[in-house]
Write a protein that binds this DNA or RNA. Sequence first.
DNA 1: GCCAACGTTGGC
DNA 2: GCCAACGTTGGC
Length: 156
Amino acid sequence: MQYWLFKTEPDAFSIDDLANMPNQTEHWDGIRNYQARNFMRDQIKQGDQVFIYHSSCKDVGIVGLAEVVKEGYPDHTQFNPEAKYYDLKSSPDNPRWYMVDIKFKQKFATLLPLKTIKEMADINEIGLVKKGGRLSVMPVIKTEFDLLLSCCQTTN
DNA sequence: GCCAACGTTGGC
DNA sequence: GCCAACGTTGGC
């Protein structure tokens, strides 16, 4: 099992939106970065645990937990000329962009702010605190995932 | 294949 | 809204 962090802008799609979806499951479309795409296509597996992180908003930080329920498959929005994430250069024969499905597991009573994460002495590897923190999909090592999760759950 | 210009992300 | 840090594009 592996661990990940997915960013989302809560104005567009929040942890609450995920919780309110049918079956509390949604496909994570709109990833248009090659490094993130490679994670989606090749590495993210069913059962993997995913932190949901709210970015570009008033309260920035980890807000909840989800689980991967479907592994990488082509992101259909790339083929739709009407869609925001349409990609002229991609075709169904050779899709450029992939997505996974995730299912809501838990919303934390209080979010774990980015500021706090940066201040934690034992959190040094997660992309949020390093260069390259702009990736919208990033791996989290088990030790840091466990630490962050316990932090989220004890502050409840 | 280099690299300048441009676009995007995302914290503040 | 600003701006730093990246990522992508495209001319050469």
